[in-house]
Amino acid sequence: MSYPQQLTPEEKLADVKKLLSLPRIIVICGSTRFMAEMNEADLRETKDGKIVVKPGCDMKSPHELWSNPAEAEALKARLDDLHRAKIRLADEVLMVGDYIGDSTRAEIAYARSLGKPLRFTHPEVDPDA
């Protein structure tokens, strides 16, 4: 007797997206030094009918929410976890900017480990090109 194979969480998510007729979901990644470019990419991707998720906090800019160094460090860890969740949710990853630092390199590695398609605004910075 053969039993049906269980779907992976990723397969279940893909099925739900189809059932809900969701547009393609794009996650924007990169250094927050490129927030202006991320906002421009958000506009263009949204105009093309895609759902866009991107970093919501620019910790390189001063703000009361991360003015305390100890709290800022804990917030950075939570934001990194949140961004990895955005990568898992997305159908595609758009890497913005002409610089790849350690955090962005980790995002690229994570997205690739999940088999997510990647696009680069500056393909020459792709560490695996």
Rank of each mutant, 00 (worst) to 15 (best):
P4L: 08
P117F: 14
E124I: 11
P23D: 03
R88L: 14
D15R: 13
L118P: 13
R119G: 05
G30A: 12
R105T: 05
R119Y: 13
D91Y: 10
L43R: 12
E64S: 14
E107L: 10
A36G: 06
A77Y: 02
D15M: 12
R24Q: 13
L89E: 03
D102S: 12
D80N: 06
E11K: 13
K50S: 06
A70D: 11
S103P: 00
H122I: 08
D42M: 15
L89H: 01
E45G: 00
D81M: 11
K76H: 08
L75H: 05
I25W: 05
P117K: 13
H63N: 08
V52L: 05
I26H: 09
P117C: 05
S2A: 02
K116M: 15
I87P: 00
S113T: 14
P9N: 13
G56S: 11
N39T: 10
L22Q: 09
D102E: 08
I28T: 06
M59V: 07
M35Y: 03
L75G: 00
E11M: 15
N68A: 03
Q6M: 10
E37W: 03
A109F: 00
P4Y: 05
Y99G: 00
I100T: 11
M59A: 06
K60I: 06
D15E: 12
A14H: 07
E71V: 07
A129V: 10
E71N: 14
G97L: 11
C29W: 02
G49V: 00
K86A: 06
M1A: 11
K47S: 04
K54C: 08
L20N: 04
A77Q: 10
N39C: 14
K54P: 06
I51A: 04
K18V: 07
D80V: 02
Q5V: 03
S61V: 09
Q5C: 02
H83T: 02
T121R: 08
P127D: 07
L94V: 13
C29R: 02
Q5W: 01
D91N: 10
I108V: 15
I26Y: 02
M59T: 10
R24M: 13
V27I: 07
D98Q: 07
T8F: 09
V16D: 08
P69M: 05
L89Y: 03
A41N: 04
D102A: 06
F34E: 01
L89G: 04
K50W: 02
P123W: 09
L114M: 14
D42Q: 09
A74R: 15
F120Q: 07
P9H: 05
E40S: 07
Q6R: 03
Y110E: 03
L20V: 06
W66D: 04
V93Y: 08
R78Y: 01
V53M: 11
A106Q: 04
A41Y: 04
A41H: 03
K116N: 12
L13W: 12
L20P: 00
L43K: 07
K12N: 12
I28D: 09
D128F: 15
F120R: 09
D126S: 13
S67I: 04
E92S: 11
H63D: 11
L65R: 14
D102Q: 12
